[in-house]
Design a protein around this nucleic acid. Structure first.
Lengths: 342, 342
DNA sequence: TAAATTTTTTAAAACGTTTTAATAAACCAA
DNA sequence: TTGGTTTATTAAAACGTTTTAAAAAATTTA
């Protein structure tokens, strides 16, 4: 297990030359004589030399590594359905730039702010992409707004902070507008918990679309639920119970949309004829429902690539043209909204 | 951006003491005088000292980091539905042991073997967990069977190699046996491509269960498909076409099972009455089908924890009691197999 | 008080690089 | 030959730690 690795020193000895010459040769420095260089490269190859990155990092004061940091809370990054796509996006860019990715969860017992700071200051990573615990947590403030290279995934009020985020408001707007454009008049919105920014934004998008169509906002059409399928199921039952008249549902996420579809169908109504449904997130299941679910798609992968690119720019002291980016969403029209029949 | 961090040196200067004393104090060494120590810790705290891990690593010849390595092929780890659970398992153990996780994809242009070796030898990680490209790829051999600390996720013929793997054979055996025990006589197996070890193992498990029940293996009941839902759909149509008599299906994965269920239902047969169905993988959708799908569940999370634990043992030069571990699977009985009605 | 012992502190080396400034070697012109 | 250039090589410092062995200071013993 305790293997010895070949160092510059070993090459130097065999090639009968100084360490400096070896280092310069390997770096392709034009100063060293062509023959010496050739010989050194030969020796290096024969000894299977691989540079020790730790030594390099120490000297260069750079780790050539960035970290994706997220809190170790019960509902952390791992439970997000598209976490892996985010990872994929980040990785793609990092590979292109020969950077490594450190995946850092903060140990629970430590307060988050500290954890973030530690990672950055212990110099294992040159910058971090921060996946926030929840929007409520604003303790991270001092680190976020410090001079550390940080890209924050989400919205942040201070305009100086570099962020990448979904366009929740825009997505909800487009979804609602689509329903209105297909002639729906009374659109129910099943919202997620309104303590989350995501829910607030989606509700706001819904409102804007209504306003643009000169429709009154009717609070009896808003049901606040908790993002689960069961909740969606209950929501539709509840509507039936209260004899609410409606011809469409825009749900705060696909799971709730699917739940609602199930109970609507059970109640004997037809989708999309009686009720058009639009979800949000474009989870895999959306395309496997009957009817297939119209929904809003966000590319987490793109959030990942954009975030990584921004961070790399920061590390290279490049000017960041767009400090706060919201990646575009896309309306995916399937059968549940009835628009295909037109 | 170019922030200065406080070093031992800075603390030493302020506390008017040598670097060595600071280092010893911070390490809690009993040699240093209690008052000196107290003062030093105070200064360290006031300067918000965080040790530079790169410096530490260099000195200690350890990175306190392990890497999860996978090839940058089109069908890599990211596309595996349970990759994130694996990650979660690994992370859990690493956090407990204060180790960091490096996520390393090999740049495509480089041959994989080289990539693995690089990661290990550049000393960024002390050991690696290897997620193989495909079972066919045996080029990794020299690295796997070297003295490097490597845990391989999958089966490996050489018994000296440390591996963690699913019990595909056992899972298929249990699934098939379950169908047999509920009285099914002619069980179709929709297999994945038989070039993959996973498919071979699952088919083998199926055969064993049959053999144990003294049933003849009938190759007309085996359909080789490609793991997609469409393939499952086609498989059932094909069976109908060829007028194959059968009363159950054991599919090589849930997607194919779901596809088959859809076409079976379309053909007017009832599940589980006419045909019992068992899938494999326990994807989320399995529990959302109508009827819900009986399937085999493997805990990727557990594979992750076990792999991480093994690797940590290796790093600590501990004896590994069980070199090759297959984590247990679990039959999840739902409605599609009809066993609940008994 | 001197010597012996114990406690406390520190200088210096080591880990593997890169880079700067100095030196050495080779070449050229007079 | 001498001096001046150019080209090639290298010693040494630096990055931030930890650890060992030695030195210094404090305490005890004789």
């Amino acid at each position: 297990m305790s293997k010895e690795y070949t160092r510059l020193k070993d090459i130097a000895k065999i090639a009968d030359v100084s360490i400096a010459t070896v280092s310069l040769s390997l770096a392709g420095d034009p100063r060293v004589n062509i023959n010496t260089k050739k010989n050194i490269l030969e020796v290096a190859r024969s000894l299977k030399y691989v540079p020790n990155e730790i030594g390099r990092s120490l000297r260069a004061k750079k780790a050539e590594t960035i970290a994706l940091v997220f809190p170790n809370t019960p509902h952390n990054a791992f439970s997000h359905p598209y976490f892996v796509h985010l990872l994929e996006g980040i990785t793609e860019v990092l590979v292109q730039n020969s950077l490594q990715l450190l995946l850092s969860t903060s140990p629970t017992e430590m307060d988050e702010t500290m954890a973030y700071e530690q990672i950055l200051r212990n110099r294992r990573a040159d910058g971090i992409i921060l996946w926030p615990a929840s929007i409520k947590d604003r303790n991270i403030l001092n680190i976020i707004e410090s001079a550390f290279p940080v890209v924050y995934l989400g919205k942040w009020p201070n305009e100086e902070v570099i962020t990448v985020t979904r366009d929740d408001l825009g997505g909800a707007y487009v979804a609602t507008k689509h329903l209105l454009n297909s002639g729906r008049k009374r659109i129910v919105h099943i919202s997620g918990p309104l303590e989350y920014q995501v829910s607030i934004d989606r509700l706001e998008g819904y409102k804007r679309a209504l306003a643009e169509h000169n429709m009154l906002y009717d609070s009896s059409l808003i049901i606040e639920k908790d993002f689960t399928m069961e909740a969606g199921y209950d929501a539709a039952i509840q509507l039936d119970h209260h004899k609410v008249e409606y011809d469409a549902i825009f749900a705060g996420n696909d799971l709730m949309a699917i739940g609602a579809m199930k109970s609507i169908q059970k109640l004997g109504k037809s989708i999309p004829k009686d009720v058009a449904v639009v979800g949000y997130d474009n989870i895999e299941m959306a395309n496997l429902m009957d009817p297939t679910l119209t929904t809003i798609h966000h590319s987490m992968r793109q959030i990942g690539t954009v975030a990584a690119e921004k961070l790399i720019s920061m590390l290279n002291f490049k000017k960041i043209v767009e400090k706060q980016t919201t990646v575009p969403m896309r309306l995916i029209i399937r059968d549940s909204c009835g628009a295909r029949e037109i």
